[in-house]
Amino acid sequence: MKSRRIVSWFLFALIALTAAMVATTEKSSAIVQQQRSQIAIPIIINVTPSPLAFAPANASANAIVASFVRSAGAPAHYVDPVAALFAGARVVVAQTNQQAVRVEAEVTPNPNATLLTANNFSGPIPGEVVFTGFSGAKLTQSCAYQVKVQTTTVGWNLEQGLSNDFSSGFPGGDLANNTYLIAATPQPVATPFIVFPDNNNAFTEMAKNGGTQTYCVDLTITIPQGLAGGSYGTNAIYTLFF
């Protein structure tokens, strides 16, 4: 009788332990997610007056030419014979003002490349976002680009952030995003991007969702007052986990 009771307790304990282990395993797999894809969207801010502005300049096509004006009262031998030699002569100066270098790559298609993509950029150049404005200006691009997750996975996480500040005097936080599902309406307010190295090397969660989803990203940039003209760049990084 006593041994039966012991066996029953043992079986009960075994079943309870097994159930606990199964539960723990399921919980672990639900929490631990792997990075599946990461994309970077170049964001370029051209601040005017910019050194990138069009400034046509032509190399002189003339040869070296000397001309001289002689005082009317000066005798003929005051003329510098060296200068006279140059007058009207064509002197060719060897120069090379163009050089080229070849860029190559062997591309292999990546089956996971379409898990996370960015497309439908509002600007003229596909694959990048460009703002142009004066220092102190506040500029907005509505649905500057779309971020698309394309998977059948039920539960995934999408994180976002900037790779770097634009410069030491132009923090990445001056760029704010308003991110929303393409079929929905924008959020009430835009949120400044966090910058990965300024945020303890961490991104922030942008969305938790499942299946195929497309987000619109409105961008607002506030260019610091007194910022020197030039071109400033960073990347908006999106990382998919499931």
Partner: peptide, 25 residues
């Protein structure tokens, strides 16, 4: 034996730009 008459000499130079570019990959 000559009479020296000082006068200004104006010399205008149009120098061709000299450009040298070295590209090292």
């Amino acid at each position: 034996a000559q009479t020296n008459v000082p006068g200004a000499v104006h010399v205008k130079w149009f120098a061709q730009a000299i450009v040298k570019v070295t590209l090292t990959p």
